[in-house]
Design a protein around this nucleic acid. Structure first.
Lengths: 102, 102
DNA sequence: TTGACATGCAGTAAACTTACAGCATATTAG
DNA sequence: CTAATATGCTGTAAGTTTACTGCATGTCAA
């Protein structure tokens, strides 16, 4: 796990909007950009432009947290939380007050 | 755990310099600003100004990851990774590919 | 009390982030 | 083919971040 990967993963997780997008995708996989905009309004009452959601998706994709596949003219976004991500997110464990896994 | 706390914690962890500071403090507790500047040069050969390190420490403190105590004219910085932080860092676990804790 | 030391505060410049609008491109329905 | 739809690309504006310099404040030693 490189420093850059850790940077990307933690940065991706450091925004509430992006964490909400992860939650939407965990509830229903393979959602399009429009569906995610709709999910934001429906679940949290927050209206976001397509461009805004698109940028957040790009950040999540750069961190490898989502995968995309094209179905005709729609791009389906799905969660892809791997063991590598879990390992990265566990980085802090080692510095726990009374040592790791106490 | 509020959204703001998660933001602060993940943001604090999303910078390699700050993660290095955490590592320095894990190797030796209660270090001053100058000692941390020296540790950066000694351990990684990276020279950082005091002000730069001070700002990073402020971000870490805002996330509750370090505690400080004054000893005369020096401010001692120590790691303070609580169960709350571990819980926050574990936020992603729930979205693991095959469900949590598989 | 004075000088050296440790830190804090203000200000700056470049880069990045986050939100948006507008236009372009590509695909599907009719 | 044409219109509607879904996304991508470019640009913009405000705010934040990251690095720094310089000056001010507070504390300890001589």
């Amino acid at each position: 796990m490189t420093d850059d990967q850790l940077n990307l993963i933690f940065k991706a997780l450091s925004d509430s909007t992006r964490r909400r997008i992860i939650e939407y995708l965990s509830k229903q996989s393979a959602q399009s950009l429009f569906e995610l905009c709709a999910a934001s309004v429906a679940s949290d009452g927050v209206a976001l432009s397509r461009q805004t959601v698109s940028q957040h998706l790009a950040v999540l994709e750069k961190a490898g947290l989502i995968e995309t596949t094209w179905k005709g003219r729609t791009k389906a976004h799905s969660l892809s939380v791997t063991d590598g991500h879990i390992e990265a997110a566990s980085w802090l464990m080692e510095f726990r007050k009374d040592g790791p896994k106490t």
